Simulated assay, not measured.
Amino acid sequence: MNFVLRRRAFGALALAAAAPAVARAQGAWPDRPVRLIVPFGAGGAVDTLSRTVANAFPQHANGQPMVVENRSGAGGTIAGGVVATSRPDGYTLMMADLGANAIGKMLQPGLGYDPLAAFSPIIHLVNLPLVIVARPGLEAATLPELIELAKRRNGEMTYASPGVGHASHLSAELLARRAGIRWTAVHYRSGADVMRSVIAGETDWTFPSVSTSLPFIRENRVKTIAVSTANAVPLLPGVPPVGATYAGFSSATWHGVVGPAGMPAELVAAANRALRAIITTPSIKEQTERVQAAEIVAGSPDAFATFIRAEAEKWEPVIREGNIRAE
């Protein structure tokens, strides 16, 4: 073998030996920044959770940053459309929400993607309980009294909602179905506007997340009626669950992370491991539970997919029978 042939043979052997290492390096996720698309504006509960996750992401993801990008509007489906049409390479993810990722097409039949087919579920991070709070002067202090007052008003009682199809809106409609009553939704642009309307007496009550309403509850600026979860919420001791009056009633807003449909299983698993490590970090878990009254879930991709389908099935009759459509 002459010198040139020997060089070529040696080079081929070196490349062959290096190939697995190169493949491993190229296959390591992430090897560049990851975008997290958030379906609501900055400053709310979802944004707070997203930035908590993003701040801790580099420690569990090869030192790579996670960049939070707020894409609010249309009940979260603007953000959903961005992610649904992105490459399934793990570098565009979404903070999942009920509207964008489960029921969006029920509310908007012309929506350009199917929430149940357009995404790869990665991890269910948290459930956030809701709480019924009323304006200070309302002639009701308990849930049975609220329902009785609504019956007397025969549909004229108003409740504030942060938007059509929001968990707060649908939970109020589910409660009306269980109680056999009617009341009138007044939709606002944000949770802050909702709380302002109730405190000012523009509307009678609302069904916000505990984290949104807790400062106003502690300042006695609203009446606290009942929590939406099956059991009591530790941050609101003594406040009964709706289920104490209507057995089996349970509702919450929830968030997790999804990617575009078609993400390889090993990539989904890698993202799940990183995000689960973040949300179960003791300091982050404690802060999220204490500040947002959150239930940490941190399950598998398959469990999250099953949960999203169950949410779609739960809310479909409420949306259909109430003829609820996004504005």
Rank of each mutant, 00 (worst) to 15 (best):
Q108T: 15
A23Q: 07
L236E: 08
L128Y: 11
F249S: 03
R153G: 03
E219W: 00
M157Q: 13
Q108D: 10
Q26G: 04
V233G: 01
N2H: 08
I78M: 05
A232W: 04
R35G: 01
S213M: 12
A100H: 00
N101I: 05
L15A: 15
L98Y: 00
T52Y: 06
G137L: 12
P240D: 11
S213H: 03
E295I: 13
F207G: 08
G43D: 04
G165I: 10
N2T: 13
A118Q: 02
V233W: 04
G110E: 07
I132F: 13
E289C: 03
F307R: 10
R51N: 00
A172L: 07
H255V: 00
P317S: 11
A252D: 03
A150C: 14
A28K: 09
A172I: 01
A74F: 10
W29E: 00
K105T: 04
V222C: 06
V222K: 05
V227L: 15
I103K: 03
Q26S: 02
N70Q: 12
T142D: 02
L111N: 06
S171E: 05
F40G: 02
N55C: 01
L267V: 03
I147W: 03
V83T: 05
L235T: 14
I225Q: 07
T281L: 10
M1F: 06
T280D: 12
P260A: 15
R218G: 00
L116M: 14
P115G: 04
N62Q: 11
P88V: 09
R189W: 08
S213Q: 06
A45Y: 07
A17R: 02
R189L: 15
R182M: 11
L174D: 10
A298R: 03
N231K: 14
I217H: 08
L138K: 11
L116K: 01
S251T: 14
G43C: 03
V82E: 14
G41H: 09
P65H: 00
G104T: 01
S250A: 11
S213F: 10
A192Y: 06
I308K: 12
G44W: 01
R320V: 07
A270M: 03
A25W: 05
A23P: 00
P88T: 11
W29G: 01
T92M: 11
A293V: 08
A79R: 09
R196P: 01
E266D: 14
V46K: 00
A252Q: 03
S283L: 11
R221A: 09
L267D: 02
D193T: 09
E156F: 07
T92Y: 08
A45F: 02
A54W: 01
E295R: 15
A167V: 15
L5C: 02
P260E: 11
A61Q: 10
